[in-house]
């Protein structure tokens, strides 16, 4: 499968760039933790409010960080005309999509591990129900990365990229925020059975947008 091995090459390239430039590690990750901290300032940490709303705050922090990760992922392609080089290489659009989205998924999953430890520490939440938390996080992250990558290429190369990407990504991912928050809430309060329908919703969302990305990316890379 050339599509998959090409995708791996693109993902490997993106991850290598992140490993060396440390933008994700040095800027996006601290930003995510900072958002958690700011929520604690805004909502009285002494009250029982924080542990109750922790799942929602966690996923908002993830979404905001995801917007930055998407912007970063396409800033790399527009710096020295790399996008044209990618087009000229003849590599399939689907491979570019899967590679870039895959790299974002891995970056976000790493970020989520840190943020989960953060909510555990800062919000006094008992982390449990990992058998629900992990599939929820994987499905939600795939959905966020897929939509983010499609909108990232839509806005790549535009002067208004930084401001347009959040306006496009955040409304579309509203169901992910709802679903992942509910599923996390159910897992953390011990009612894991209620979480599965939400996980299914997240899987459907991810499937729809991964498919859309595979089909549409070639045209967007070329024409848009």
């Amino acid at each position: 499968m050339t599509i998959l091995s090409d995708a791996l090459a693109v993902a490997g390239k993106d991850l290598r760039i992140e490993a060396r430039s440390r933008v994700t590690l040095g800027q996006i990750l601290p930003f995510g933790v900072l958002v958690l901290l700011l929520f604690a300032f805004a909502l009285d940490p002494q009250s029982r409010l924080l542990p109750n709303v922790a799942p929602g705050l966690f996923w908002i922090a993830v979404l905001l960080a995801a917007v930055l990760a998407v912007s970063r992922s396409f800033a790399v392609e527009s710096e020295h005309g790399a996008r044209d080089a990618l087009r000229l290489s003849g590599i399939d659009g689907a491979s570019v999509f899967l590679g870039k989205a895959g790299a974002i998924v891995l970056e976000l999953l790493a970020l989520e591990v840190v943020l989960l430890i953060g909510t555990f520490g800062l919000y006094n939440v008992n982390v449990r129900g990992l058998e629900v938390l992990i599939p929820t996080a994987v499905a939600a992250t795939c959905g966020i990365a897929a939509t983010g990558t499609v909108y990232g290429i839509l806005a790549a190369g535009l002067r208004v990229r930084e401001t347009l990407v959040p306006l496009l990504v955040l409304p579309v991912t509203a169901p992910v925020l709802l679903g992942a928050t509910r599923a996390f809430d159910d897992a953390l309060t011990g009612s894991t059975g209620d979480a599965w329908p939400w996980v299914q919703l997240l899987v459907v969302f991810a499937a729809v947008y991964v498919t859309a990305g595979i089909v549409a990316f070639e045209s967007l890379l070329e024409e848009a």
Binding site: T147, P171, A174, L178, A212, A216
Partner: peptide, 28 residues
């Protein structure tokens, strides 16, 4: 042509989201 390509794909992405949003919100 660029605008048409960009926006037609964005329109379909948004439209595909409508039932998912509706479903998740009413469930919520």
């Amino acid at each position: 042509e660029q605008r048409a390509m960009r926006s037609s794909i964005a329109a379909l992405i948004a439209f595909a989201d409508v039932p998912i949003v509706h479903f998740s919100v009413s469930w919520w």
